[in-house]
Design a protein around this nucleic acid. Structure first.
Length: 641
RNA sequence: GCCGGCGUAGCUCAGGGGCAGAGCAGCUGAUUCGUAAUCAGCAGGUCAAGGGUUCAAUUCCCUUCGCCGGCUCCA
């Protein structure tokens, strides 16, 4: 007779069972209904299968399918089913790894032939067959030696490589319907649990993510507990595609990246340029208000500047080749900092002068490999909203706090009030002294704490020259985009021998802070555009109002309305084309113009306009003065949150 | 850079070894109209570029460029 063990439940209750009782039996005993939604259990902090036998006193926590861990297990099991299907359909395929990821799962295969979209359909179909069979996922623990032989006999060399790296003596394998995989688990009880999945893509991926290794074939997929959730996800993906900034950029005539100009080089069209210049105007105004000094620096400089800064050595692969100018080598600038340092050094600086804050919308050029270019997101020439602050060590904390508040004010002005904030600390390879690093990290932390913002620490993720704070904006679809960055730099002041004269009359080295609020205008424009799906905030809309005539009889009045709007600095257009009103409304709507002002005989007679918003609602006819006042309210930045 | 897909009119896309197609946009004309597409006509092309196979290539093959999805990278 097995001895009794004590099983404790999450609510603190406990009950005794015979040793060897499975987790499933325990769940069934407490509440039969649990078995419908629970995919695995956590025993003393460790996730295991429902078939796990309990042999000692334990704390048990059910993992339901709708928990993050439950969904991961669900997707991971789906990836195993996919691997089985692939192995059964294609000869000569070797399996590697197949984890669950944020929105689904993938499995990497070493396949003699690349997969095609048609193959995906076949694989999906075969997966359905496997699911229908409802075969159990069976766990077994075997010795490494046996495992090596097992996978060796199957020719699974990647699995052998993985086994050899497992420190434990025993490894676990999972088997379903004759397909065996090396896996830590846990898994669903059986394949029939999989209710809704879809294979979403094929891509190349290096074995173990290393360029030096063989390129494998990765199949991406996703799975949800219900068909409805899957459909919702797929709908969201479609929505994201609709607001793709490359598509909107073309449709709304904002910018283009032309083959003839060169990959990764952006031409801003008039409508996009309006938005950008409004952003820049706002940026400049706010920088003066926040005690920055705005500067301009050249686009090329002698390569020696970059040798001094260290960029030449560290980032050679991302810099453009030098051009010969009267026997001297020049390059286009990949960074603005050395110029700012030059301006700082154009005079002897006193401790009384600090902090000095130089800001520049500086356009830089970096060589990005062709495969990484992506719309405005990843380009070869971009404009940083850059600034460098030179301060004394005891000013660091205040400066960081100031920058943080400034950043949030700017982001909120553009309607972003949802962020993830990270503090990255000293990496393994670093310059500067430990003491300085600690002081700087603390200054960043205290400043963050003062603002009361939630932040996470990313240990060891700082840049080699100093710790940093990164702010990621969350957009309306919940996607996070790196934009603001605040970095302390111990390296450049030293390399350029930057100094100030202290109270003691001696030379001291200032601390330098690099910071970008929006990152680059291109990138910022990208997530701004996608966040609003092209329906810009009124103060940034390229066209704020368009006057639409009902018939040509109203042209003269329409022109008067248009002129009046322009006089009041409202960006307006007028559409007097010989088209039906519905046609003009549709076009204006597609252009996402915030206000359409319909003028027909009725309006002309009463000297009013009938506004319609881009969301489709019509407002009561109002006088032009009232409309101008109405729009005027929206025609300025209004920080949210 | 690597793996795979793609490149046809301004845009979205069909086609396919033998005369290059549609819708929208454009132009011309008719229509004078009330909140998401009025009608008709016209015009629009080195089928990404270069090379090869072929009697014949936009179509098949190779190379280059670019774009898309990933991988790697991202001060």
């Amino acid at each position: 007779m097995a001895h009794a063990i004590k099983i404790t439940f999450p609510d603190g209750r406990y009950k005794e069972y015979a040793a060897g009782t499975t987790a499933e039996a325990v769940l069934k005993d407490i509440d039969k209904g649990l078995l419908k939604s629970v995919v695995a259990v956590q025993i003393n902090e460790r996730c295991v299968d429902l078939s796990f036998s309990l042999n000692e006193d334990s704390v048990i926590k059910p993992i339901a399918i709708d928990l993050k861990e439950g969904l991961e297990i669900y997707r991971h099991s789906t990836s195993h089913v996919m691997a089985q299907a692939v192995k059964e359909l294609f000869d000569g395929v070797k399996v590697t790894i197949g984890p669950s990821i944020e929105d689904g799962f993938y499995y990497d295969f070493d396949s003699p032939n690349p997969f095609t979209p048609e193959d995906l359909k076949r694989i999906e179909k075969h997966m359905l067959d496997i699911i229908k069979k409802n075969k159990p996922f069976e766990r077994a623990e075997i010795s490494k030696k046996d495992a090596l032989k097992l996978f060796g006999d199957m020719g699974e060399i990647y699995k052998q490589e993985l086994i050899n790296e497992i420190p434990e003596e025993k490894v676990s394998i999972y088997k379903q319907d004759g397909f065996v995989d090396l896996c830590r688990g846990p898994h669903l009880p059986s394949t029939g649990w999989i209710k809704a999945f879809k294979l979403t893509g094929i891509a190349g991926a290096y074995w173990r993510g290393d360029q030096k290794n063989k390129m494998l074939q990765r199949i991406y997929g996703t799975a949800f507990p219900t068909k409805q959730e899957l459909d919702e996800y797929l709908y969201k993906v479609e929505e994201a595609k609709k607001r793709d900034h490359r598509k909107l950029g073309k449709e709304l005539d904002l910018f283009s990246i032309s083959d003839d100009v060169g990959a990764g080089l952006v031409c801003w069209h008039p409508k996009g340029a309006v938005v950008r210049s409004l952003i820049e105007d706002f940026w400049k105004k706010e920088h003066y208000k926040h005690d920055y000094q705005i500067i301009y620096t050249p686009h090329i400089a002698k390569v020696d500047l970059w040798k001094t800064s260290g960029h030449w050595e560290f980032y050679r692969g991302n810099l453009y080749s030098p051009m010969d100018i009267e026997g001297q080598d020049f390059i286009v600038k990949p960074m603005n900092c050395p110029f700012h340092i030059q301006i700082y050094q154009s005079q002897l600086r006193s401790y009384r002068d600090l902090p000095i804050r130089y800001a520049e919308l500086g356009t830089v050029y970096r060589f990005e490999r062709s495969g990484v270019l992506h719309g405005l997101m990843r380009v070869r020439g971009f404009t940083q909203d850059d600034a460098h602050i030179f301060c004394r060590p005891n000013q660091l904390e205040d400066e960081i706090e100031g920058v943080l508040n400034f950043t949030l004010y700017i982001l909120r002005s553009f309607g972003f009030n949802n962020y993830d904030i990270y503090l990255s600390t000293r990496p393994e390879k670093f310059v500067g002294t430990l003491d300085n690093w600690t002081k700087a990290e603390n200054a960043l932390r205290y400043a963050l704490e003062k603002t009361g913002l939630k932040f996470q620490i990313d240990p060891g993720e700082g840049v080699f020259y100093g710790p940093k704070i990164d702010i990621k904006i969350k957009d309306v679809l919940g996607r996070a985009w790196q934009c603001s960055t605040i970095q302390v730099d111990f390296n450049l002041p030293q390399r350029f021998n930057v100094a100030y004269r202290g109270e003691d009359g001696k030379g001291h080295q200032p601390i330098m802070i690099h910071r970008a609020l929006m990152g680059s205008l291109e990138r910022f424009f990208f997530f701004f555009l996608e966040h609003y799906a092209g329906a810009f905030l009124v103060w940034l809309a390229p066209v704020q109002a368009i006057v639409l005539t009902v018939t040509e009889k109203n042209n003269k009045y329409a022109q008067e309305v248009f002129d009046a709007l322009r006089k009041q600095d409202i960006r307006a257009e007028v559409d007097i084309r010989n088209e039906k009103l519905g046609f003009k409304v549709r076009e204006a709507q597609l252009k996402k113009i915030p206000y359409m002002l319909v003028v027909g005989d009725k309006e002309e007679e009463k000297q009013v306009v009938a506004p319609r918003t881009r969301s489709g609602s019509t407002l009561e006819p109002m006088s032009l003065e009232d409309f101008i006042r109405f729009v005027g309210e929206e025609n300025k930045p209004r920080p949210v949150g």
